[in-house]
Design a binder for these strands. Structure first.
Length: 412
RNA sequence: GCGGGUGUAGCUCAGUUGGUUAGAGCGCCAGGUUGUGGUCUUGGAUGUCGUGAGUUCGAAUCUCAUCACUCGCCCCA
């Protein structure tokens, strides 16, 4: 359109959409609070190392999607592409290891230089949680149950399904990786070009390829579950049992993998078919090694993040907007502000009509979905009264100023 | 980063094989009611036809480039 476009992949949240976003956030946060989560707010940029050293050098996010820049002091900074690394960094910086276990909720913009598409933006918004300091699988169960609960609160229960897998601990994962690469190497001729590259960079990614030929190869590939050592196996079983006990339906997907390197053991995704190619609505996993790797005290963690734009597109509810009442001065405009402020101070939502004749102002009141109009006419004003018109019934009456708040009580 | 589609008024969209002043509905503004809205009715305004080049006597229409959105891949929330 015009020259004044927003930057590619960014967009404005106009009031209506902003309301939906806030509503989604509030519903999520409200549920999270019941699980004991408190909000943490971290900066939207960090030293580049925070991300580049911890998400995995070869991941797409780090290798080609970060908004990295040098500030005026020559420091390399990066707009956060995800939330977990920043929270982990804040955990270390703030010495929060003394307050374990820690339940944190966050929300805000994230940035990735990707090709924009529906449900995929360069500046997008996530909300997420992190539970730090609990080794046992009950943490996984609680965090996933919370996710399911939030999706239910948003009315999305029937539109999403939970897929679950275990990536095992580091030794299990390494063993599996070797076995998988060995297997794939024997079928190089049938793999897509993308998958041949993935074999080098991130072999597990071949497992969720959408290419038909790849799928045929993958169908007979070794499975992660068969390479889990006893401990990892037990962990995975316990998580599944816990979710069953919590009443959260699960589809075990042995080919589910994660894009970032810090994950281990539990990996999960809530997916939908309603958003085209961007089917993941909420996803996360366990990252026991991350904080230690960053230089902090070795601390287990598990968390997830959800895309607010994606949730908002699926969410059918509407934000409830409080209906205002409208003050319409007719010839006593100086006094209108007095009445208006008095009512606002008393807790009412009040709009003051700015201009036009009575007809126009009432029409505007109507468009604002106002519940009532307070008409200040000279005649009534002389009697220290005004006209109250109920805009739903059309009935109107004269109300003395002295009892105004009482008479308006039903519109509160 | 790769391949396909789309781009006309604030919004949703027509626009015939290139042809003269580019349309509709909704919305907006104004009147019918100079202190009374929602319905009805009458009238009005609005477009660099995404942008830039090219072909042509003539381009919203054809060609190329470019930007944005969109679908799939990729990636992921």
């Amino acid at each position: 359109m015009s020259v004044l476009q927003p930057v590619r992949g960014t967009h404005d949240l106009l009031p209506e959409e902003a309301r939906r976003h806030r509503l989604v956030e509030e519903i999520a946060f409200d549920v999270a609070k019941r699980y004991g989560f408190g909000e943490i707010v971290t900066p939207i940029f960090e030293f580049t190392d925070v991300f580049s050293r911890n998400l995995g050098e070869t991941t797409d996010v780090v290798s080609k999607e970060m908004y990295t820049f040098t500030d005026r002091s020559g420091e390399s900074l990066t707009l956060r592409p995800e939330g977990t690394a920043g929270v982990a960094r804040a955990f270390i910086s703030g010495g929060l290891s003394q307050h374990l276990p820690l339940k944190l909720f966050y929300r805000g913009p994230m940035f990735r230089y990707e090709r924009p598409q529906k449900g995929r933006l360069r500046q997008f918004h996530q909300l997420g949680v992190e539970l730090l300091g609990v080794e046992g699988p009950q943490a996984d169960v609680e965090v996933i149950a919370l996710a399911a609960h939030i999706l239910q609160a948003l009315g999305l229960k029937d539109q999403v399904r939970l897929e679950l897998n275990s990536l095992g601990d580091a030794p299990s994962r390494a063993a599996y990786r070797d076995a998988l690469v060995a297997y794939l190497s024997g079928h190089k001729d049938k793999l897509s070009k993308d998958s041949l590259e993935r074999m080098e960079r991130n072999p597990l990614r071949v497992l969720d390829s959408k290419d038909d030929s790849d799928k045929a190869v993958v169908a007979d590939a070794p499975l992660m579950v068969d390479y889990l050592n006893d401990e990892s196996r037990r962990f995975f079983d316990t998580v599944q049992e816990g979710l069953a006990a919590a009443g959260v339906p699960v589809f075990v997907n042995a080919r589910l993998v994660r894009g970032l390197d810090y994950y281990c053991h539990t990996a999960f995704e809530f997916t939908t078919t309603a958003l085209g190619a961007q089917g993941t609505v909420l996803a996360g996993g366990r990252y026991d090694g991350l904080i230690g790797q960053m230089g902090g005290p070795v601390t287990p963690g598990i968390g997830w993040a959800a895309g607010i734009e994606r949730l908002s597109m699926l969410y059918a509810g509407e934000a409830v907007v409080r209906r205002p009442m409208v003050v319409i001065p007719m010839g006593v405009s100086d006094s209108a502000v007095v009445v208006t402020q008095r009512l606002r101070q008393a807790g009412f939502t009040v709009e003051l009509g700015y201009s036009g004749n009575m007809k126009k102002r009432l029409a505007r009141a109507n468009k604002l979905n106002a519940c009532a109009a307070l008409i200040l006419g000279e005649e009534e004003w002389a009697r220290q009264a005004l006209v109250l018109r109920d805009l739903d019934t059309g009935e109107q009456e004269e109300v003395p100023l002295a009892v105004l708040e009482d008479r308006l009580a039903r519109f509160r």
